[in-house]
């Protein structure tokens, strides 16, 4: 057996409490425990994290990049979803 049997994990770090976990990269490991240990050595050598998530890469479901326009472009036209779309006279305060 060689490393080719080791699955790929995506690694997410929370840099401090109050912030989201953020994707930082990936690594191979024999199992989830080893993924966490290796992530500590590979991605947190300078105190970058207070918490690590390791997610099997095969478990991630992603949108298709070729659908990007059809998926996300209509939202660019919906300017009324942003507060700056509305004209409020200057004399009206606190709004």
């Amino acid at each position: 057996m060689s490393r080719k049997d080791w699955p790929l994990f995506e690694i997410f770090l929370r840099s401090r409490n109050g912030l989201n976990h953020k994707h930082v990269g990936s690594l191979h490991a024999a199992d989830a425990d080893m993924a966490i240990e290796n992530a500590r050595d590979a991605y947190t050598r300078r105190g970058e994290a207070v918490s690590i998530w390791a997610v099997p890469s095969s478990a991630i479901v992603a949108s298709d990049p070729s659908d990007k326009d059809a998926y996300f472009e209509p939202l660019a036209e919906k300017v009324y979803r942003h507060p700056t779309h509305y004209d409020i006279p200057d004399e009206v305060k606190n709004i």
Binding site: S2, R3, K4, L8, S26, L27, H28, D41, A42, R45
Partner: peptide, 28 residues
Amino acid sequence: AKVQDEAGHGLYLYSAAETLGISRDELV
């Protein structure tokens, strides 16, 4: 610490290369 960093840099970069569709085993 420096030599450990270099191992780490190798790992970041192998991971980046793998996103292009080549396996770690092939790279090694």
